[in-house]
Design a protein around this nucleic acid. Structure first.
Lengths: 166, 166
DNA sequence: CTACAATAGTCGGACATCAAAGTAAATGCA
DNA sequence: TGCATTTACTTTGATGTCCGACTATTGTAG
């Protein structure tokens, strides 16, 4: 982004700031803003769909990860890495899931710093129903056809780059 | 989503749940998850870039909106509509911006329920520098070429649908 | 073997978001 | 006119996220 470089968009000035002109181009700010808004929309739809189960999307994702794990359990640290959230967020989510009886905490006897989380039978039942609820609303993406989804996924994967493919 | 309908993805079962098989398809859940992750990545980059200005992206967006407004001021309710956030979030953001001397609150004399927010001179200066900081990191999208951005924006616009174009 | 460093998890604090409820003011209708 | 409704904003409380700091445990270098 050299200073003398020609900008890829048509700029306007307001309040002393160079802004991209709103003419249908897809400059960085518009794209970034769109992602933020769509995430906001999706998250609110998710949480609404999960409300009957007393779940949030954050906690749903933790349960989903556990159900996928080979041994049915994961150390909290691994959950944090997979979901790319801070350790404290994992502790928080697990705390609430344990309170609800959906997840068990089990200390690792070999490495006593570690704690495993695993789904309880109740947790598995709830996860099954919650998953169905999310699939029923098609994850809020019903307006997109298969090609759009494919395209969207491919582009977003580029941005995720460093993130390993789950 | 009829029950007997053929699924557009190759399902697997685990913990009693039908999950999409992870074979590179772009089924709803994978797409939704990608959006959530990318938003997470972008937000953390934004907040890091804005930290020197004691700003968060939420507050930056409020200021950005104000700088765009015709009269340089907006009622809080309009800000909430534009950003699609709860009135509480707007009150919260404005409170902090006022504390920092970046924004002024002005009661509307005509309709005394209303409160206008507007940038202070200091707010305008900070916004200018903060905007440059975000543009310098290219809003975290440097890995995408112009075509990708265009594509991404177009698909996301479909999802935003109801959302008016800023 | 000991001292230092790295790792796993938790705690406290800050910020953002939403929902529900409350206050005040404007609007609408009988 | 007058009272119910709507609108604008704020307050309170719950959730989730991050950062920084802390404890406990494990790993490592000398």
């Amino acid at each position: 982004m050299g200073d003398g470089e020609r900008l890829p968009f048509d700029p306007i000035e307001r309040a002393g700031i160079l802004w991209e002109k709103h003419v249908g181009d897809a400059s960085s700010m518009r794209v970034a803003t769109s992602i933020m808004r769509v995430q906001q929309l999706l998250l609110s739809e998710f949480d609404r769909a999960l409300k009957p189960f007393d779940l949030t999307f954050a906690r749903f994702e933790v349960m989903r990860l556990l159900s996928f794990s080979r041994e049915g359990r994961l150390p909290l640290s691994v959950i944090g890495q997979r979901l790319m959230v801070h350790p404290t967020s994992v502790t928080n989510a697990i705390d609430r899931l344990v309170s609800g009886g959906l997840v068990d905490r089990t200390p690792d006897e070999a490495d006593r710093r570690r704690v495993y989380a695993s789904l309880t039978p109740k947790g598995q039942k709830v996860l099954t129903r919650a998953t169905k609820a999310l699939m029923d609303i098609d994850f809020g993406l019903e307006v997109l056809d298969t090609a759009d989804r494919e395209q969207l996924f491919k582009v977003l994967r580029t941005v995720r780059a460093g993130d390993f493919e789950e």
